[in-house]
């Protein structure tokens, strides 16, 4: 409905109506080349037949999806059973990403609240400080984290020197390391939207609640959190979605046992052992899940706005 404005029968004529279509062209080209085309390619590839050494044969096939959901035995002729391997990896990814999101929320909310309640002149500085670590490439940060957390790393040695622990804690190659990695990778995405919401929050509402005999925790629960909920929701989505598909943190910090979807997909396109249609299908399934999540949360916030 790009030309919909002309049918309105408005009295004023739109001088730029013609030009506007052309001016939108760069946006459409970018959107097309960078978003729609890759998605289309992904979708098509997921329905093709795999070539033995990577790549595809142009022949329609549901094998990729079938392989994801069903186990038909080693030779593919056994009666189909539900294949739990990949569903399990998905489930673990959701769990890991969920915990990372929760951790980000628990740390990010007080941080955002702290920044938003500083004097106005200081806030920009605090926001700037939060973003500084993100000037360093994600890969380097994740590798550095591995060094910090490993058995002979500064964290363990520091704790041992302080006498808190006598044996180094095994953190690297555990779920905890993955969660910490994801948390650290995406924390600003939690802090910034919540900060924006708390900054807009009318603190007179907290005063009004206190005036009406509400203690502090009740004010937080009944007044502040509902008022900044859109910011919290945005932050959770911005942390959860990239965490779900992430492969750097699980690969580098989690080791082989803590495989996540991102790594599974990455494997399919690496070297000669890959299975492109299967990787594409896994990507489409992941995308569908994220889309459902976004639609549900959008519905939810619409309902509350009413």
């Amino acid at each position: 409905m790009a030309g919909g404005g002309a049918t309105g029968g408005s009295v004023q004529t739109d001088t730029y109506a013609g030009a506007r279509g052309w001016l939108l062209l760069p946006a459409w080209v970018t959107l097309g080349i960078l978003t729609l085309a890759p998605l289309a390619i992904m979708l098509v590839y997921s329905f093709l037949t795999k070539e033995f050494r990577g790549g595809v044969i142009w022949e329609f096939s549901l094998d990729a999806y079938d392989q994801f959901f069903f186990d038909r035995g080693l030779f593919g002729d056994a009666p189909p059973q539900i294949e739990w391997t990949y569903i399990g990896i998905f489930w673990r990814s959701i769990w890991q990403a969920g915990l990372a999101t929760l951790l980000s929320l628990l740390i990010g909310f007080p941080t955002a609240y702290f920044i938003a309640t500083r004097p106005e002149k200081q806030r920009a500085l605090w926001v700037f400080l939060v973003t500084i670590p993100y000037w360093v490439n994600l890969l380097i940060r994740t590798v550095s984290m591995k060094f910090l957390l490993r058995d002979q790393g500064p964290l363990n040695e520091g704790l041992m020197a302080l006498g808190v622990i006598s044996e180094p804690l095994t953190i690297v190659n555990t779920n905890l390391a993955v969660q910490l990695g994801l948390f650290y990778s995406y924390l600003p995405f939690m802090v910034l939207p919540i900060y924006a919401a708390v900054e807009r929050y009318n603190f007179a509402l907290s005063e009004a609640a206190a005036d009406l005999y509400a203690p502090r925790w009740t004010i937080l629960r009944r007044i502040l959190i509902p008022a900044v909920k859109p910011g919290i929701l945005a932050g959770c989505i911005l942390v959860f979605v990239p965490s779900l598909g992430s492969f750097l943190a699980p690969d580098l910090l989690g080791g082989a046992r803590n495989f996540m979807i991102g790594s599974l997909i990455e494997e399919q396109f690496k070297g000669n052992a890959g299975n492109w249609p299967f990787g594409a299908a896994a990507s489409m399934i992941l995308l569908t899940m994220v889309l459902i999540l976004l639609i549900v949360s959008a519905r939810q916030s619409q309902k509350e706005a009413r």
Partner: peptide, 9 residues
């Protein structure tokens, strides 16, 4: 309150 501070939700 001056600007009422009603709970919007």
């Amino acid at each position: 309150f001056q600007n009422y501070a009603l709970f919007p939700h």
